[in-house]
Design a protein around this nucleic acid. Structure first.
Lengths: 308, 308
DNA sequence: CTGTTAGCGCGTTCAC
DNA sequence: GTGAACGCGCTAACAG
């Protein structure tokens, strides 16, 4: 008789099951950008892959974008745990609600929040280290190309006003690290981590007289650095003879084999894995604690002494 | 008094709400590979972006990988509608169940299933067109590098056995289109759409005597084509003077500016948008119908007449 | 070991 | 207009 009904009964309803068990098998992954931009960034991609490695087949990743009115979506979406990829202060309300609901939360390189486990990277320290390398080569006219500092995604000159209103922890930390070495460091804010933006930023920074233009550019990501190098090539400048360019990330960049970028290599996949593992542990009722990773200097061939 | 209780009441529970309303605001996106591999492919990425554009802020994308025992995950996951990205026959059981549950389903370039709305591309016709271009240039010794034909991801020589057991509709269609022009077309099956695989495949195909090696290679994706061109460069062959290489997709490839690839440009983002729009319509109870897109030939500078 | 029941937290309906 | 009750579909606990 049960079998008879099976004629149109097809398995337990996942919604009812999730209500009953208090578990949906879904981990929310909150990104603060449109999907495409996030996925174009090799570091984000690597972290996502790391997460999915650790979550295993049992659970899926629910991609939620926290742009604009995304708050309500986050608060009303079904998931057992949340991973923030670079979360900024304006998510405070959602985080508060999720904490009250006892939803485990892990932030990868976001601002620190109470009750949110942190997976972090030594951004400031690493940025300082590579800036020091450039400093030790004798450079004094130095500029930077930063990652986006706030929700307004547009390429524009860096200003103290922008810095004051900045919300993106990663970019702020890397900027501060660089300014630990070059206190007056100025430059351009990119709209995204892409070589197109690096190119545009490079062109802006490098058009000027030989005596005023920077002899070194600190890019906050490898993609940006690659773009800056392209800009230099377009302007007839040789790297590193005429211009030193350093990056950040240690990304493997498709079709960029002429140079070996001087950069700080970060363990991107491991960050994702740590976040995934932490979520898994917390969901199993086990304790988990903050994790921090360190970047490693990779000396390439894009940094050299001051020209002339 | 309600307010008094609010001290520890934080919003409606999404699980209960989803059970009651029969809606979770989640669209399942089923991919048949690891997350990383899918995200490395610019076409998949563009389609995902298109989907997220159309879904709007109200709903999130639940990423489900249908590798291995993924069947059970799909059947027990919470979502209102499903989008298959290149689904193969072995998902038939899950599809059957979802149909019984009245879950709207849309497949982007997958095998046709009853009750699954199709968003398709003219893969066969387009592959035929670009093969015809190569044919008209006079090439007769032609080889192909195909996308994966089945779940076994490994780079290996194309064989009729593999073709017979193939499950990936896109690759099959493109191969058939090419064979409409070159009936005995042989070559290599790639493990993924990547320039690394293209390079490896190119090296395999191009090591041989001048008289036996192909004068043209039809790659089933632009990334593969780029890899083949790199292989040619490594072997000292000039493109297109010594070797004609054509791709498929019309992808914008980072750091590949020396050539303009001759390829079929497909509307990848639009495919995603169409899928997202269809899902949105179906969830609103509105009708939706199959959509098919056409590729456009883009003449670049990587195809030329037969050498000698 | 099989069959029944209670309640997960909500939204809607119905009764007042 | 405000308030109580029912049921979405399941599973865990309990009774027979």
């Amino acid at each position: 008789m049960t079998a008879a009904r099976e004629l149109n009964y097809f398995g337990p309803d996942p919604r009812a099951r999730s209500l009953r068990q208090g578990r949906s098998g879904i981990v929310g992954v909150i990104i603060e950008d449109r999907v495409l931009n996030s996925f174009r960034d090799p570091m984000t991609l690597a972290a996502l892959d790391g997460i999915s490695q650790e979550l295993g087949e049992g659970s899926g990743m629910l991609l939620l974008t926290a742009v604009g009115d995304g708050e309500s979506t986050i608060q009303s979406a079904v998931f057992d745990a949340a991973i923030f990829m670079g979360c900024s202060p304006h998510l405070a309300r959602s985080i508060e609600i999720m904490r009250q609901r006892n939803i485990p939360m892990v932030a990868i390189e976001g601002q620190a929040f109470d009750g949110v486990l942190a997976v972090s990277l030594d951004n400031r320290e690493a940025a300082r280290r590579i800036a020091q390398v450039v400093h030790d080569l004798g450079h004094t006219r130095v500029a930077t190309v930063t990652l986006p500092l706030d929700a307004l995604r547009s390429l524009r000159p860096l200003s103290e006003e922008i810095v004051a209103g900045a919300t993106t922890a990663v970019s702020i930390d890397r900027l501060e690290g660089a300014r630990d070495v070059f206190p007056d460091l100025d430059g351009v804010v990119a709209a995204s981590s892409s070589s197109d933006d690096g190119l545009e930023a490079g062109l802006r920074l490098l058009t000027g007289s030989v005596s005023s233009r920077p002899t070194a550019i600190l890019a906050q990501s490898d993609l940006l650095a690659v773009g800056v190098i392209r800009a230099a090539e377009q302007l007839g400048l040789a790297v590193p003879a005429d211009l030193t360019v350093v990056g950040f990330d240690g990304a493997r960049i498709e079709g960029f084999s002429d140079y070996q970028l001087t950069t700080m290599k970060q363990p991107a996949t491991e960050k994702g894995r740590a976040a995934g593992a932490a979520v898994t542990a917390l969901l199993a009722g086990e304790p988990a604690s903050d994790v921090s990773f360190a970047s490693v200097l990779r000396m390439g061939n894009t940094a050299g002494p001051v020209p002339g």
